[in-house]
Design a protein around this nucleic acid. Structure first.
Lengths: 171, 171
DNA sequence: TATTGTTATACTCTATAACTATA
DNA sequence: TATAGTTATAGAGTATAACAATA
């Protein structure tokens, strides 16, 4: 089987141009590629294409869990910040509180989170995971480890380190 | 004044925690941040947040040009691959040909592109920029230089280099 | 039979305005 | 007056199915 990319530190095989590999984390290059010129050096383009590749792999890895990227991050932040307000969780994730309502509704419908009473502010909800939510997130944590490990194996630890170091500057 | 980010190689101003800076390329951190734990080290999250920051700055930089990120990349690829089929342009950008039709319609409505006759295939359109499209893209090229330069100044040339080097592995 | 461009359609994500109950 | 949660709504972006013309 022909493969496509250069070996990373560990033991990554090369990806061939024509090898159709629907399960591969990294996409196949088209046989007759167009001239992209400097497009791959433009930050927005490079970040967007990479983000889409990672989200597609995320979808495959989390198909059995039933969580999309934003849902996973929301539950993850709730787990580490139990009792916080709905709007605080939303703000931490860069989601507008108005769009976060339906996500919370679905979590509650699936029995993953609980809108508790806030002690000091009767307008606010104190958000927390239910036992079922904790259990699902435990499974999801195992899955995310596999998911993240995949990128280290594919790209190399050093490349992932310098990537994340720079991406942190955006946050 | 409390600050947020380390100076880049050149001469980057420091961002204060409370200083409200609506024009700043990088977002302000919330005063009372939640515990994100390992979230910023997850590839999908880190890439998505960075991509959004870059696209927001793109929107500000290109407000006068009237091009969104996907539109700019489409025109850019058309410029470097005149005479190619609509579906080839779309495929190169990871856009489905069915969703690319309306984008091409808008380009034509604005007089930026031309659906020419393909010499060898009467089903296909040979896409190219009009003079007006070339002119707009010349302006856009100046703007993208400023836009890209901003990230180098903010993040440092070395960080941008290692970022792009790794992001290229996704393409 | 397969491909090119197209329409129609649906679903997600995101953005804004406005309401209510509290603060 | 401002904030927390909510509803309604509109706009992007993206995905699939189906069609006519052509290969």
């Amino acid at each position: 089987m022909t493969t496509r990319r250069q070996k990373a530190s560990a033991g990554m095989a090369r990806r061939g141009v024509k090898a159709s590999s629907p399960d591969a984390a990294l996409p196949d290059r088209p046989v007759q590629a167009l001239d992209l010129n400097r497009l791959p050096t433009f930050m927005g383009y490079a970040l967007r294409r990479a983000q889409l590749v990672v989200f597609e792999q995320f979808a495959r890895d989390f198909a059995g869990i039933g969580l999309r990227p934003a849902q996973f991050t929301a539950l993850y932040v709730i787990q580490h910040n139990p009792g916080r307000k709905q709007s605080e969780i939303a703000a931490a994730l860069g989601i507008q509180r108005t769009n976060f309502v339906s996500m919370m509704d679905e979590f509650e419908r699936r029995g993953l989170t609980h809108r508790g009473k806030s002690a000091d502010d009767r307008r606010a909800h104190a958000i927390s995971l239910t036992d079922k939510g904790e259990k699902l997130l435990k499974k999801a944590t195992t899955t995310i480890e596999v998911h993240e490990r995949r990128w280290i194996d594919l790209l190399g630890q050093d490349n992932v380190d310098c990537l994340l170091k720079t991406l942190r500057m955006f946050m």
